[in-house]
């Protein structure tokens, strides 16, 4: 006799556990509330940070310091940091190679999980920056040939590449004297532009962090993490 009574009493007790019986709208609103809060937390705390996929990097065909042909396809699968300059650049000229030197020196402390990092300096003064001049410059800057490549090519192709593709201004004022905006570009292994640093001396820490983020995304994008990364891109979880 006790058993049926106890069973019958149970549903009433469970309804009173919180002092009220949560109705359907209340449950719906609390679920929605939790979802919104979760999303808000994801966007503000940003547990996953990504670099924007700005646009497709430009295509090019240039020659390196050995006179060999180098194209954008040769860097597929590597993370590439570009800068644009000319070697006869003197006194009041934005000095951008120093940043690449520092990045090259600090590549050891960076763990990209096997993804090669390459540095590419493109000279927009092919008349004076011959392969020999590029070799001399590479030696002077202490460039590791396995990491740092110096490129140049036909003037109209350079203008389409640097001016058109990377949107970086340069102009030859007088023969051998260029005016240009200093800029660095980071392109990922799929050939997509991921970061632009439009300043003469960017923070090397920031560049190294960005390279690390690109490499991390490549390694972590598996299974459910794919959706998390897509969400991070969707909600602009960019590093600050």
């Amino acid at each position: 006799m006790n058993h049926p009574d106890g069973l019958a009493a149970e549903p009433k007790n469970s309804g009173r556990r919180w002092g009220f019986r949560p109705s359907f709208p209340v449950i719906m609103f609390s679920v929605l509330g939790f979802l919104t809060l979760g999303l808000f937390a994801f966007v503000t705390i940003r547990p996953i940070q990504v670099l924007p996929r700005i646009t497709l990097g430009p295509g090019y065909f240039l020659t390196d310091a050995n006179g060999a042909a180098v194209t954008n396809e040769d860097f597929r699968g590597s993370i590439v940091l570009y800068n644009f300059t000319y070697l006869n650049c003197t006194a009041p000229c934005p000095e951008t190679s120093g940043t690449l030197q520092e990045v090259q020196a600090r590549l050891d402390e960076l763990d990209t999980g096997g993804i090669p990092v390459r540095l590419v300096t493109i000279s927009f003064d092919p008349a004076r920056d011959t392969p020999e001049a590029l070799q001399a410059a590479a030696a002077k800057l202490g460039a590791d040939p396995a990491v740092w490549t110096f490129l140049t090519g036909a003037p109209e192709r350079l203008k389409w590449l640097i001016g058109g593709g990377f949107s970086v201004y340069y102009e030859e004022r007088e023969p051998g004297d260029f005016r240009f905006d200093p800029a660095f570009m980071l392109v990922d292994g799929a050939g997509v532009l991921r970061a632009e640093y439009r300043t003469a001396v960017p923070d090397p820490d920031r560049i190294l962090r960005d390279i690390r983020l690109v490499a991390e995304e490549v390694h972590n994008r598996q299974g459910v993490a794919n959706y998390a990364y897509d969400a991070a891109h969707l909600f602009l979880c960019y590093p600050r």
Partner: peptide, 10 residues
Amino acid sequence: LGVTTQLGIF
């Protein structure tokens, strides 16, 4: 060149 460069093509 104007077309190919912006499409990542050489």
